[in-house]
Structures are given as C-alpha cells and as structure tokens.
C-alpha cells in the first residue's frame, strides 16, 4: 500500500509543518539585532553582484538608451538629434528585413529546438538505461559549451559547396552538390541547423529535469484509466511539463532574438540580406558605419520587442501552463 501523500493535500501538510516549527524554539529564535546583522550580511554578499550588474549591465543599458537620441561616430562630439535615429531606423529597408529575418528565425529555430529537445529528452529518459542516459545528457549539452564562432568556422568548411564533407556524403547517395552558403534558402537552413544543433542541449536538460519531476503515480493512474503510450504523453507528460516548457521557450526565444555569431561567421548576413539579423545590423551600424546612435536605437527597439514577447508569454502562460 502506498504511503504517498496525495498531491492536492501536500500544501496543507507543508503549512502544518511550518506552523509546527514556527513558535520560538531556540534554534530559530531571532532577536531584532540578529535580523539586522543578517540583513547587512546579505547585502555584503550581494554587493559584488549588484556592483557588477550596475556597472556592466544597467549603466550601459541606460547609456545606450540615452545614446539613441544622439548622433555619435566615436570621434566627434555627440549631437542631440531627438527621434531622428528611430525615424531613420524605421525607414531603413535593411533594418526592416533584418527584423523580419530575426522573427522568422525565432519561429523556426525555437520550434525545432524545443521539439527536438523534448523528443530526445523523452526518448533518453524513458528508453535508455541509466549509464546511456548520463552519456547522452553530456553529449547533447556539449555543443553549448563550444564557442559559437569556432563552431561556425568549422561548419563553414563542412557546408562548402565544392569541397565540403556534407556535399560529399550527399554525392554518395547520388544527390548533386547543394549550394548551402551561397543561396538564400541554403544559407538560412544552415544558420538554423547550426544554431539549433548548438543550443538544443540546454532545452534538453531542462526537459530532462522536468520529466524526472513528474510522479510515476500519475502515469500509473493514466495506465489504469486505459491510456496508451502516445496518449500518456499528450495528456500527462505535456501538461505536467508545461512549466518547464514555458521556461525553456522564454529562454530560447530571448536567445534566438539575439542571434549573431552563426550568421555573422557563416554567411555575413548574405546572400543579399537573407540571413541578416537584428543584432548583426546593430553591430554593422555601430562598428562598421560608426553610427552609434542609430545602433542604440535599433538596440532599444529590439529590447522592447524582447520584453513584449516575454510579457506576452507569461500572460499566455496563465491559460496554458499547468502548475501541480
């Protein structure tokens, strides 16, 4: 007979446990001065992080917002131009295309990343023996710790139309050489492929953690109710995994919206503007055209888009995410 506390009763149990230890036992009793000194201690520990974040994150963000209203080429003194930078950015066809590319990239890459990570996580968690599970966890996570620039240089060789290994393998199957990096479709496919290959390991680990936290009893109950393997995943795994899916999707979308390394190294944004992304345009405006104000304006717009998408995700999560 199972001694597990039914899940719905767990909060009550926890509340009882808190009440049980709360009344002033010697181990947890605290004087006002004790709490005061602990607060100071907390601030001391937090200080380096707060200082670091303030200096290297918040101040640059604020400076970037201010800079968006100036014309500045590093060399001359900045000139206040009001909203001119924003107006120019909105009218610039390259900027518009790069944002559309970025959004298309996010939709495809994030869908592939999450889909692949979830499928592999389920397979590894359910079908593999423990020792293989450990191996695959490391193997799938490994690309993430590599430098994106190095990986992209390496991939550039692999996908070379004339001498790349990928086309060589395809030729063994009688498939003619594919112009991977020199046609809009091919280059977009390679950028997405390389990005997903390198990043899905993080989502995979999140899903592995999420799957491990789903109680076996729920699956047992579903089996008793007659659910088969596929239906169990649809009606048990996916709903109970929804908080993890939310976290994974928020992080994947934020990361994909900032994609730079792979398209920059693999294709330099080409052919045409087919793989040019928002962050690439920020880099080109600032460090190649010396238009730091315009680059900051694009950065501000991108930040607002990221914030809006993240807020929308959390809002939607109230309807679609099932917290146990």
């Amino acid at each position: 007979m199972s001694t597990t506390i039914p899940r719905r009763d767990r909060p009550k149990q926890a509340a009882k446990a808190v009440k049980a230890v709360k009344p002033g036992t010697p181990a947890t009793s605290q004087t006002a001065s004790g709490r005061h000194s602990q607060r100071w201690l907390a601030w001391i520990f937090l200080a380096p992080t707060i200082l670091g974040m303030g200096l290297f994150t918040l101040v640059p963000i604020a400076a970037s917002v201010v800079l968006a209203f100036f014309r500045w080429d590093i060399i001359s003194a900045p000139t206040f131009v009001g909203f001119d930078n924003f107006a120019e950015v909105v009218q610039d066809p390259t900027v518009r295309v790069s944002f559309l590319n970025t959004i298309a990239f996010v939709i495809v890459a994030v869908a592939l990343q999450l889909g692949l990570a979830l499928a592999l996580a389920v397979m590894v968690q359910e079908k593999m023996p423990a020792w293989l599970r450990t191996f695959f966890r490391s193997a799938f996570f490994f690309p993430l710790i590599l430098s994106a620039a190095s990986v992209s240089i390496f991939m550039r060789y692999l996908f070379n139309e004339q001498f790349g290994v990928v086309n060589w393998f395809l030729s063994l199957a009688g498939i003619p050489a594919v112009p991977w990096l020199t046609t809009p479709g091919g280059s977009a496919a390679v950028v997405i492929l390389v990005y997903v290959w390198q990043n899905f390991g993080f989502s995979f680990l999140l899903f592995i953690g999420g799957l491990a936290s789903i109680p076996m009893e729920t699956y047992e109950a579903a089996s008793l109710d007659g659910a088969t393997g596929w239906r169990k995943h649809v009606y048990v795994t996916l709903p109970l995994l929804s908080p993890t899916t939310l976290l994974a999707s928020v992080m994947a979308i934020i990361s994909a919206l900032q994609v730079f390394d792979q398209p920059y190294v693999l294709t330099r944004g080409g052919p045409g503007d087919s793989t040019r992304t928002a962050v690439m345009v920020i880099f080109e405006s600032a460090f190649q055209r010396l238009e730091f104000g315009e680059a900051s304006a694009i950065g501000v717009i991108l930040t607002l888009i990221i914030m809006a998408i993240t807020a929308a995700q959390f809002r939607l999560s109230k309807r679609f995410v099932f917290y146990q």
Partner: peptide
C-alpha cells in the same frame, strides 16, 4: 565609408 560600401557590394554579389 568603406565598411558600409563593402557590405553593400558583397551582399549582392552572390545573388
């Protein structure tokens, strides 16, 4: 404006 000019050239050559 070489950097911008180079980008304008390069991005259209392949196409």
């Amino acid at each position: 404006q070489q950097a911008a000019v180079e980008t304008a050239l390069m991005k259209n050559v392949s196409l």
